[in-house]
Simulated assay, not measured.
Amino acid sequence: MTDKKSEDAPSGPRHVAIIMDGNGRWAQKRGRPRLFGHQAGARRVREIVEACPENGVKYLTIFAFSTENWKRTQTEVAGLMTLFRRYIQKEAHDLHKAGVRVRFIGDRIKLDDKLVCLMDDLELLTSGNDKCHLTIAINYGGRDEVTRAAKRMAYEVEQGRLRHEDVDAETLSKFLDTHVLPDPDLVIRTSGEARISNFLLWQSAYSEYEFVDTLWPDFTAEEFGKVVGKYGTRDRRFGGVKA
């Protein structure tokens, strides 16, 4: 878990997380079904991933499907699951060729077996890559993640492998889905909404936030670069004050 940076750390964000919002509204403005917007949003992901290295971003985490998204219509949910499968099948080779390491976070219990197998295969295929680390959150919720982590930690205490007096924030972070990742430096939300929607609640305790009006399918690599560039102008004190 990362709470602070050294003084000689890069001025830009090393880890950017994105709440990709606005696909449905983008489609509706064009008189098209919501899934048309999700398809456009999926295509946008590739452009942003490709823009990460040139902007000094090593880690990119995107919010693809939340634990609350199951409340959407059955048609939309089924369409999204099909889109996820097709995205992995279509992009796997190019992601691997580009040196991108892919990880998935979230609870996989409710996901269908075929999708989970594709996720596992893509993680294995790209496990040796290090140019950019892409983490995709599917059936993910921050509260759910912390709850699952707390259950796993409690089980370790119960089994005598962990002493309860040794449990602290650092210990809990090791049980999170993101335990191998640095905390996000910058969280971006598109579409003009100004809320965090249960995304990386624990990890973003010291993150900078940027809420942009652009709908996700219109969020270009150029705009991404501008938002990332603004990060370096912020004064990050992590609760302290400068002498």
Rank of each mutant, 00 (worst) to 15 (best):
A150M: 14
G141E: 01
D166E: 13
S204L: 08
T82I: 04
E50S: 12
V57I: 15
L35N: 01
Y231G: 08
L200G: 06
D94E: 14
H179M: 08
A64Y: 05
R161E: 12
R44I: 00
A64N: 04
G99N: 08
R46N: 12
D177I: 02
N139P: 02
G142W: 04
G22W: 08
L35A: 04
E76L: 04
P10Q: 15
D107V: 00
L172T: 05
L118I: 04
C132N: 01
F36D: 07
G225Y: 07
V187P: 03
C117Q: 15
P184Q: 13
A64K: 03
T82F: 05
A137W: 02
F63M: 00
E156F: 06
R86C: 10
L186N: 07
K151L: 09
G99R: 06
I105H: 05
R148S: 01
L162R: 08
L80Y: 03
F65G: 05
A169F: 06
S11I: 14
R195M: 11
Y206E: 12
T82E: 10
G225M: 07
C132D: 00
A64L: 05
S204R: 00
K114T: 14
P13Q: 09
E68V: 02
R72C: 05
D8L: 13
G24A: 11
F63K: 02
G128H: 13
A51W: 05
F211L: 11
E68N: 06
L118R: 09
R46A: 14
E193A: 10
R195Q: 12
E50P: 00
